[in-house]
Design a protein around this nucleic acid. Structure first.
Length: 644
RNA sequence: GCUCAUAUAGCUCAGCGGUAGAGCACUUGCUUGGUAAGUAAGAGGUCACCGGUUCAAGUCCGGUUAUGAGCUCCA
């Protein structure tokens, strides 16, 4: 039979040759490095026979595919075996690979904790050092079930029973046959191909990812082809931890949380300064795009939530308020608003609207409260009290396309000015369960798609992931270290205008339902500020920084000069810290650098004499001396918000 | 919400049955020093909360709350 290699060369091998035979026919080096093959696009074990003319490529650990196979073998054959060696009676569930590593889910009588990881690693290295071959046998369903039921591997039995095949269940063994695991494969032919690895954490995980099921113990690890790559990865994780907004927020005293209000931010002066800078940036942009800003109530009677449908669906996530009976006649049940849209419809409904008024664009910095499950709270990223840069557009179906286009223009400009040049767009289409006719969905999906295409932007379609009330666009930005954050959203809604009876008078003189579009660019201010802090490692651009210039004196004779500069900077709205303390300049520089003040001016006798300033910028160890007038002119321009 | 872990000074952490510790920060004295820590002294704590074991509990046990890592969830 003829085997076609990726370089199009053809080799003639006897029928039934294995991947290993093929590799050997090419060269001994490759035979040694080979770990698996891809036959006609499907990954196979090196020992699998090839029975017909095929396109075959050989996988080594240097490729992404090879690395994944190695991680897979490491978890399924080594980690699983090590845990069973150490903790007999542990049952195996599943052990897949993930980005940069792998995990395995176990059910064990012994609670496995982080302290056990080192012990498990040692056991794993012991197993690897045996250089065992990994062998595969195929079993019928019945045989496979028998093998695992004897071992009391409940989860493997479930997997086999739920599989649609009747035979060819792949079981992998190591040398002595003591350890067996069911696996789709392929695996390394021998444990000596395993590279560098480290177990990273243990955590609970539900069987099959369903909260109704039993909680299993999941052990996570990371694995690479060599020590160098492993180290690189561990350093990258450390770097990411250094920019954790909770850590930086504490260091810079931006905000805090406390027990009495879990998930609600106590903003400190400096953190709130950032918030205000961001808010006024957004406000200016919204005005430019013809939004009208409104403000609606925090506490609203349940009747409105019943009408909007939220009471039925999301009540368990709402903060409900009841008035103490002793103190009020009015015992109505209210809820803190979990979202702004029902209130926005109330504003829209006030006064008769004509088709000439559309589109109506209402915006609100809407404070919302949602009772999020306690385990999901996470710094500023996931909170219970937050403020959306929310907005709702009431328009006709035929206006959706243009509104989409305008929104993307608004959003891309804002992201760019905030320092995010790249973002992806995801278009989510109709889900199985939905409201509205197919005809309307066709039009709405088409409108969103057309708008993106006219702007010549790439996008991805996510089938069936739209909300039940309409299709949506999600905007995902990429931060400085390559992490993705979904922030912006644009959702057409055919449901709420109906439920809350929004109307406009059409050209024909009769009443029609407008389409409502829910949209946000940042998502929530809290979360977005968290993202900004992590993106910039706290070193925010001058216009967003809570304190912009620190004036640090070297000798007390220049205090008056420092005060003069302070006054001048304040007069052009620059936020200044004047540091006249009896400390050395090195001490002052260190302190203000740690506080991430963008600009430090050091003033000594020379500067006062020549009316200059010595400028030191955050992130740089160089200083630059320039005339006070030049500095003022420069900073005046630089500190301007990009929205002004 | 679930699993596991953690909770000691403003911050970072040590202490693990026998009178609460360190570094930094803070206050005061000396020091006017040229770009990431001058120097000395002082002050600062119901050891998260509630209960239990013990002659004796930050220390051991149980519960509560919060936080962390995952899981589930996110209108």
């Amino acid at each position: 039979m003829n085997i076609t290699l990726p370089d199009k060369s053809i080799r003639d091998l006897p029928k039934g040759s294995t991947g290993l035979d093929l590799a050997e026919s090419i060269g001994p080096g490759l035979a040694k490095a080979a770990i698996a093959v891809v036959v006609n696009g499907i990954q196979k074990d090196l020992s699998d026979p090839i029975n017909e003319d095929s396109n075959v490529s050989i996988i080594t650990i240097s490729s992404d595919e090879g690395l994944e196979i190695m991680r897979h073998t490491l978890t399924a054959q080594v980690l699983a075996r090590a845990v069973q060696n150490l903790f007999p009676g542990t049952k195996l569930a599943i052990g897949p690979t993930i980005n940069n590593g792998f995990y395995y889910d176990f059910e064990s009588k012994k609670t496995i904790s982080n302290d056990d990881l080192e012990k498990i690693e040692i056991e794993m290295r012991k197993i690897i050092s045996t250089d065992s071959d990994i062998k595969k046998r195929l079993h019928s369903k019945q045989d496979a079930l028998k093998i695992f039921s004897e071992k009391d591997e409940t989860y493997k039995e479930i997997i086999i029973n739920e599989a649609d095949q009747d035979d060819n269940f792949q079981l992998y063994y190591q040398d002595n046959d003591e350890f067996v695991d069911l696996c789709r494969g392929p695996h390394l032919p021998n444990l000596k191909h395993i590279g560098a690895f480290k177990l990273t954490k243990v955590a609970g995980a539900y069987w099959k990812g369903d909260a109704k099921n039993k909680m299993l113990t999941r052990v996570y690890g990371t694995a690479w082809k060599n020590e160098k790559d492993l180290k690189k990865h561990l350093i990258a994780i450390e770097e990411a931890e250094k920019r954790d907004h909770r850590k930086i927020g504490k260091e810079m005293s931006l905000f805090h949380f406390q027990e009495e209000a879990p998930g609600m931010v106590f903003w400190h002066p400096r953190g709130w300064a950032i918030y205000k800078n961001l808010e006024s940036f957004v406000r200016n942009r919204l005005e430019k795009f013809d939004y009208q800003e409104i403000k609606t109530p925090q506490v609203v009677d349940r009747k409105l939530w019943e009408a909007s449908g939220h009471w039925d669906k999301y009540r368990e996530n709402m903060f409900i308020t009841e008035i103490d009976e002793e103190h009020a006649n009015d015992k109505r049940t209210n809820a803190l608003k979990p979202m702004n849209c029902p209130c926005h419809v109330q504003v829209y409904n006030h006064g008769l609207k004509s088709y000439r008024d559309l589109p109506v664009r209402l915006a609100e910095f809407g404070s919302c409260h949602r009772y999020e499950a306690s385990g999901t709270l996470h710094g500023l990223m996931r909170v219970r009290g937050f403020t959306q840069d929310d907005g709702h557009i009431f328009c006709t179906e035929s206006q959706i396309e243009n509104e989409t286009k305008l929104f993307i223009e608004l959003l891309s400009g804002m992201y760019k000015d905030l320092g995010f040049d790249n973002f992806d767009i995801k278009l989510s289409t109709r889900p199985e369960v939905r409201v509205g006719s197919d005809e309307v969905w066709d039009k709405a999906e088409k409108a969103l798609e057309n708008a993106i295409q006219k702007l010549e932007l790439p996008f991805e379609i996510v089938e069936g992931e739209g909300a039940f009330y309409g299709p949506k666009l999600d905007f995902v930005l990429t931060d400085a270290i390559g992490r993705e954050w979904q922030c912006g959203t644009f959702q057409a809604d055919f449901n709420l205008p109906d439920r809350l009876e929004a109307e406009y008078v059409g050209e024909d003189g009769s009443k029609h339902r407008p389409v409502m579009i829910h949209r946000a660019v940042l998502g929530s201010f809290e979360r977005f500020i968290g993202i900004l802090i992590e993106n910039y490692s706290g070193k925010l651009p001058l216009w967003l920084a809570p304190e912009q210039v620190a004036i640090a004196t070297i000798i007390s004779e220049v205090d008056d000069y420092a005060s003069e500069i302070e006054e001048e900077l304040k007069s052009i709205n620059i936020k200044v810290i004047k540091d006249l303390r009896n400390e050395k300049i090195g001490y002052k520089v260190r302190e203000h650098s740690a506080a991430k003040v963008p600009i430090i001016l050091a003033l000594g006798a020379r500067e006062k004499e020549s009316r200059t300033v010595s400028v030191r910028r955050i992130g740089s160890n160089n200083t630059e001396t320039k005339s006070l007038n030049d500095f003022i002119a420069e900073i005046k321009v630089e500190a301007k918000s990009p929205s002004s």
